[in-house]
Design a binder for these strands. Structure first.
Length: 586
DNA sequence: GCCGTTTTCGGCCCGACTGTTTTCAGTCG
């Protein structure tokens, strides 16, 4: 319901913008965003508190509130249908093409009857666009390329695939030794699970002349990986790289560095809210700084900029305008879990079942990361494709771990390898390996690896039943999604959280870049229920241990503190969170 | 159409860049 309404509202905003209506598009977009971010279904809010309750939602007043009511009661919105009758285009698709916005969409519809991406592409390729008022040859070519890009990239890229590339390009820029500083900003700095493009921010030293800057821009624009230059000015360069993602390079003087970093880190929603706040204080905020009249009062330093706005410094991962500004104003921001906090990883697959490396190699790699422990969570017998271990094989593997631990103790002491497994949750919620085998382990993870397409209530019951098993401590990748490949299975996440609390089961934040499951939203929900979580990599190769950074980013985006994440504790403390070691009443 | 430590009316984020113009509208982030 929320997502459907949000989509309609975005369309209304575009249609109003096309009609050159002032301010209302902004209001509708805000309402759309607000609905999209809402934790509860708006229909249930309405069922509980009626129109009044709906109007409590930020960005929704009486007028939009009534439209929502109409949608809930009648399944349609008359106002929307009227607009759509007059402007019957695929708005979401058309405005997603680079360079095409609401006004051009309307104009092209009126002149050429263009209603869809296919129409647009045909018109551009047929040469029917160049020559229209406001359009030339270049506009036409840009439309063709914009449509191509859209087809090719289908939008966003995974954090895990973009971050390494961004770092590589960043190093190349730094090697020019022209800029004082190079930073990655944008959604990458915010740690979002998917990334639209890479934003580089460069600080030009005072001594740099315009030719030097131009030389740096030329270098960047002519790198072999650059396929197209979208735009190039004195301070901004925008290109598309091979692989289909866009990169922006912006150049700022050092006195504006903090303001620029803040601005280009976003999110857009956070920035709008921040500027509004500045305005309310009689100030003006832009990428060049915070100004009182013409006087620059903060700009070089990001932290100072927030302070001058009466706010504590807000970590980039929180900047989504989801309450962080209010929290910063009241000094109620969380102290986010950080990279150095984690003491180990409990979800590593060894070559006993599907993994690439020996247990000894995994342990060595974990020690190299300064971990205090590593958990071997091999698959159990249901997963034949991964050579899942049966009860007997698990016993043999446990013996090897015991042996390795004894050896290690003689050497350095503290580090410990833990005996675990990642068992399979069968369709009925039972576990594919015996309770006896599970009880001999230090910990047990269970996850869904089969029969994904069940109804919501059935799937929820399935997972809850697994959580009720006293030998299952952790649920791996709780929603089962694969980014850009497959949506998660349908679950009632509230019910999962309640069951996790009631049974003392830990939910996993799977850090694998294709999963990131739980995601930021789930993490925040789980926290509010008091659920404990663990950041695991699901490593099938020792190189995957580095994926932990992506899981940490999601945990931070979900407002998690070290105290909420059980592997931020030493093993002896972590033990006490495991169900098997708790003396439960009842 | 929304919203309010100042406001129930009068504001609403800001600047760069492009492509087309010949002073600017549209788009983007």
């Amino acid at each position: 319901m929320n997502k459907n309404l949000a989509k309609i509202f975005y369309e209304i905003a575009d249609m109003l913008a096309a009609d050159k209506v002032e301010f209302k598009p902004f209001a509708w977009r805000k309402a759309a965003q607000s609905l999209g971010d809402l934790e509860q279904d708006v229909a249930s809010i309405y069922a509980r508190g009626g129109l009044k309750a709906v109007e409590e939602i930020p960005g929704i007043g009486n007028s939009i509130g009534k439209k929502i009511e109409e949608y809930i009661l009648k399944g349609r919105i008359g106002y929307y249908q009227e607009l759509k009758r007059r402007l019957p285009m695929d708005w979401e698709d058309l405005v997603s093409v680079q360079g095409i916005g609401p006004k051009k969409t309307k104009f092209l519809f009126q002149k050429l009857g263009i209603k869809s991406i296919a129409d647009l592409e045909a018109a551009a390729r047929g040469g029917r666009i160049a020559g229209l008022p406001g359009f030339g040859k270049k506009s036409e070519q840009n439309i063709i390329e914009g449509v191509e890009f859209r087809k090719k990239s289908r939008g966003r890229f995974l954090l895990g695939e973009i971050l390494p590339q961004a770092r590589m390009f960043g190093v190349r820029l730094a090697d020019l030794r022209i800029f004082e500083k190079i930073d990655i900003a944008g959604s990458l700095r915010r740690g979002k699970e998917t990334i639209g493009d890479i934003d580089f921010l460069a600080v030009a030293p005072k001594t740099a002349d315009v030719f030097e800057i131009a030389r740096a821009m030329d270098f960047f624009a002519s790198m072999p990986e650059v396929e197209k230059i979208w735009g190039k000015g004195d301070t901004k360069l925008s290109v598309r790289a091979e692989g289909g993602f866009n990169m922006d390079l912006r150049i700022l003087p050092s006195e504006s560095y903090g303001a620029g970093l803040q601005y280009f880190t976003g999110s857009k929603e956070h920035n709008i809210a921040l500027r509004r706040r500045a305005q309310e204080m009689g100030l003006k905020l832009s990428e060049y700084g915070l100004f009182s009249g013409d006087e620059l009062i903060a700009g070089a330093n990001e932290k100072e900029l927030y302070e001058k706005l009466g706010l504590r410094f807000i970590e980039p991962e929180l900047r989504e305008n989801l309450g962080e500004i209010e929290a910063a104003a009241k000094d109620k921001l969380p102290v986010l879990v950080a990279a150095g906090d984690l003491k180990g990883d409990l979800h590593c697959h060894s070559n006993w079942a599907g993994g690439d490396n020996s247990i000894a190699a995994i342990a060595a790699a974990a020690r190299a990361m300064d971990y205090e422990y590593v958990g071997i969570a091999d698959h159990t017998k249901f997963l034949k494709i991964e050579n899942g271990l049966d009860e007997a094989a698990l016993v043999r593997r446990n013996r090897e771990i015991d042996k390795l631990n004894k050896l290690a103790q003689k050497q350095a002491g503290e580090f410990v390898i833990l005996k675990g497994c990642e068992a399979n949750i069968m369709s009925d919620g039972s576990i594919d390996i015996s309770d006896m085998a599970l009880s001999e382990l230090d910990f047990a993870i269970a996850g869904v690896h089969s029969n994904f397409k069940m109804g919501k209530s059935q799937m929820t019951r399935r997972i809850v039943r697994a959580m009720e098993n006293p030998h299952i401590d952790i649920i791996s990748h709780p929603t089962g999604r694969l980014l850009k490949k497959r949506p998660g299975y349908e679950i009632d996440f509230e019910a999962i959280c309640e069951a996790a609390c009631a049974t003392g089961t830990i939910l996993e934040i799977n850090a694998h870049p294709d999963r990131l499951d739980l995601n930021d939203w789930h993490i925040r929900r789980a926290l509010s229920c008091g659920v404990k979580m663990i950041i695991n990599t699901d490593a099938h190769n020792i190189n995957h241990l580095r994926f932990v950074q992506f899981g940490i980013a999601q945990a931070r985006r979900g407002w998690a503190e070290a105290k909420d994440i059980v592997n931020a504790y030493p093993w002896q403390k972590l033990r006490s969170f495991l169900k098997r070691n708790q003396k439960r009443v009842n």
